[in-house]
Amino acid sequence: MSGPVWAPPEPGAVDVHTHVVPPATSFVERLTATDPRWARLVRRADRDDVADVVVAGRLFRTVRRVAYDLDQRHAEQAARGLAGQVLSAMPELFATWAPAAEAADYCRAFNEWLAEQVVGYDGFYCGLGIVPLQDPAVAPELLAEIGRLGLLGVEIPCATPDAPLHDRRFDEFFTEAERLGLLVFMHSVGSVTEFDHAMAGTGAIFPARIGEALAGLIANGVLARHPGLRLLASHGGGGLPASVARLDFVRGMAPPTRESMPEPAATYARRIWFDPLVFDAAVLCLLIELVGTDRLVLGSDYPFLPVDPAELLRDPRLPDGLVDQVRSENPRRLLADAPGTKHEE
């Protein structure tokens, strides 16, 4: 099956880190009837402009209608001058805890739903699929299906309950993603159930987990073995800038580590793309010093954060021209060579 072909939008900002929540479907209803851990969207009787996301029987967050209504979403964002959005699953939909067979079926159902949703809108939307990383044998197979559906890549969690992403069991996944040229969007995750408030847990966990995952891909040689991997990291890469110097120190002190890191750690960090969601200009300065301005792409976490990331980019401590580069120029470079991208003649 061949899917829709995404045409790069007209000049303007392209947001590469946005999330979508599928409305209730018969498949999700069947899953949640037997296991409440599956995330589901629950419409409210008292309001039609919001809905609740329930995870494991607990309210995780209340989302605006634009999280699941793509018509209203398009109208809102187009009115703000946005030229395009890359849609990816709300991270709670990864369900890395789920039985492998059910997870694979769910991923296929989500990918097919998303591929249908992004059609139209004058090319405003494109999408990233999901795969069941808890089954390293099946996850690579779904990448080909994602490509056939016309989705531009895959969104993955920065870790699974059984193994970190730098574990050798995921080599086939990264090999296939590199071969197909798919964009791999690594999103921070972590258990927040031990926190009194789930959202407070995301603040405590997300920067550390994504930084640890990226450092692991460098330290264990994943990025050295897959030089063509197109990797996008959420939340500004979290703590990665603080790890690079130590990785290089260890590389110099322990020569055997050069088998997995033939080049300095910073070299691998500069192959990764990052959104600017660090909430502090001083932190963003550290990331720019490490990877340069040309590896930053607009990512807003829309519609979950009530902030405009472009405001941070205008901080006087940051380089001149950064706003246009991050909002428009860099996202187009990132997406230009993705499978399914149609270039105008």
Rank of each mutant, 00 (worst) to 15 (best):
G127W: 00
L128G: 02
I130S: 13
V131R: 07
V131I: 11
P132K: 00
P132R: 01
L133D: 00
Q134S: 03
P136K: 01
A137Y: 02
A137P: 02
V138A: 02
V138K: 00
A139V: 02
A139L: 00
P140L: 03
E141A: 13
E141M: 13
E141W: 09
L142Y: 14
L142M: 15
L143W: 06
A144D: 15
I146F: 13
I146Y: 09
I146S: 11
G147L: 05
G147F: 14
R148A: 14
R148W: 06
R148N: 11
G150I: 09
G150F: 12
L151T: 12
G153T: 12
G153K: 13
V154I: 06
V154E: 02
V154K: 05
E155G: 13
E155C: 09
P157M: 15
P157V: 13
A159E: 14
D162M: 00
D162A: 08
D162N: 06
P164F: 05
L165N: 10
H166M: 03
F170W: 10
F170Q: 01
E172G: 13
F173H: 04
F174A: 05
T175L: 09
E176P: 01
A177G: 07
A177R: 02
E178Y: 02
E178F: 03
R179T: 08
R179M: 04
L180M: 12
L180F: 10
L180C: 14
L180V: 14
G181I: 11
L182D: 08
L183N: 06
L183P: 12
L183G: 05
F185E: 00
M186A: 15
H187D: 03
V189N: 06
V189K: 04
V189L: 08
G190Q: 02
G190S: 07
S191P: 10
T193R: 14
T193S: 15
D196Y: 10
A198N: 09
A198I: 10
A200T: 07
G201V: 03
T202W: 15
T202Y: 15
A204Q: 04
F206V: 14
F206H: 11
P207Y: 10
A208I: 12
R209K: 12
R209D: 15
I210P: 04
I210D: 12
G211P: 03
G211C: 01
G211W: 04
E212G: 06
E212A: 15
A213D: 04
G216V: 00
I218M: 11
I218D: 01
V222T: 15
A224C: 10
R225A: 12
